Amino acid sequence: MFDPFNIFFKGSRYWLIKSIVKLLTSGTRRVEFADFWMGDQFCSLVVTLSDLYLFACAYAVGFEKWRKCGSTAKTWPAVFILAMLPFLIRVVQSIKRYVDSRLNTHLINGGKYLCGIIYYLSYYIWRHQGSLRNTSFAFWCLFGTLYSVYASAWDFWMDWSLFQPHVKYPFLRAELLYTDHIPLYYFAIISNILIRFIWVIYIPSSSASNMYLRFFIAGFLEMLRRWQWNFIRLENEHLGNMDQYRVTREVPLPYSFNDNHHHIGDSDDD
């Protein structure tokens, strides 16, 4: 990543480093599309970020003894903070965007990430209480459902601008770029909802080894969900830029011009 030589896509590597630094300084500058788009990518890496502590611990004690690094009552807060750092960044970005624009939609978006933080907090508390069917379990299921519905609705109506009325393809939007792959829009809608509710695989009781397998499955599917989310999200952003004439070379005039009225002998003033 920090290789200074102009090999292995130096420009792309340095752009990624710069973008990550911008995320860590969120709230101090105007939030642009690349900032919150990159923040959303990291929000899908909860499992990866939480495993940073596990990796550091396993490196210290020896990888053959990695099971000793399982989260305990003393270490799970650090694991939780690592996992929730992108969500905290997105909350700060949403507040900053609201301060700059005074649009309430940014506060609603920030509420989605706050709901996600509470959901993950209740999950960690439930796990470290022994995964019992108690009050923390009910609290986790409640906020898991709220967050999944909240996030799915935001994906469909705001990030993807789907479910528009009176359109050619039901449940989609009037303008589409991937017109040769219409069925994939419907696949994305269904799979997006299912993966948003992937947390239900943690509910059945299981051994520690099976739980690690569930972590892998949930984390892998979330990355695939974000991958397909990117295509429709960027498509929607591009269409929005076109509507606001930010990506066009010619702005249409507010009147019609008839070439038949323009004669060769007319002067410049005419």
Rank of each mutant, 00 (worst) to 15 (best):
A58R: 03
Q164V: 07
F55C: 01
K10R: 15
E235P: 01
K112V: 10
A208N: 00
L107W: 10
L253K: 15
F156H: 12
L224V: 13
F257W: 14
H181C: 11
H262G: 03
Y185Q: 01
Y245L: 08
P204K: 14
D270S: 05
W66H: 12
V46N: 05
W160I: 12
S44G: 13
T179D: 09
M223K: 12
T25C: 11
I189K: 06
F215V: 06
L132W: 00
F139W: 15
A151F: 08
D268H: 07
P77K: 03
A153V: 03
Y120P: 04
H181D: 05
D100Y: 04
N210C: 05
L52T: 10
D268V: 13
I189W: 10
Q41E: 13
A153D: 02
W140C: 13
L253P: 00
M1H: 11
W76I: 02
L23T: 11
F9R: 14
L85G: 06
I108R: 04
F197D: 01
Y59Q: 13
R90P: 05
D268I: 09
R97W: 05
G240A: 12
K112N: 04
I217H: 10
S131E: 09
G62H: 00
L45G: 05
D259H: 06
K65A: 11
F137V: 02
L146I: 14
Y212C: 03
I201Q: 02
I193N: 05
T105A: 04
R90N: 11
C69R: 01
V79G: 07
Y113E: 00
D3R: 09
W15Y: 13
L82I: 04
I17L: 13
L82C: 07
D266R: 07
L103W: 01
P86S: 04
L194S: 04
A34R: 09
H106F: 15
S256R: 13
G62P: 06
F63A: 00
A34G: 01
T25G: 06
H166F: 09
A73L: 15
Y186G: 02
W66I: 14
Y185W: 08
F33R: 11
Y147L: 05
I7L: 12
Y169S: 03
E64L: 12
D40M: 05
L114Q: 08
P183G: 11
L45Y: 15
M158Q: 04
V79W: 08
L82K: 02
L224E: 05
W66K: 11
T28N: 15
N192S: 14
G11D: 03
M1P: 03
I201D: 01
F163P: 00
F80W: 11
T135K: 12
R30K: 15
T48A: 15
I189N: 07
M223G: 00
L121N: 08
S94P: 01
I7E: 10
A138G: 04
M158R: 04
L162M: 01
N230C: 13
I89E: 03
P4F: 04
I189H: 04
T75Q: 09
G265W: 10
L176W: 10
R127K: 11
L82T: 06
F220C: 02
Q129T: 00
L45F: 15
K168P: 07
S94Y: 02
V79C: 10
L88R: 02
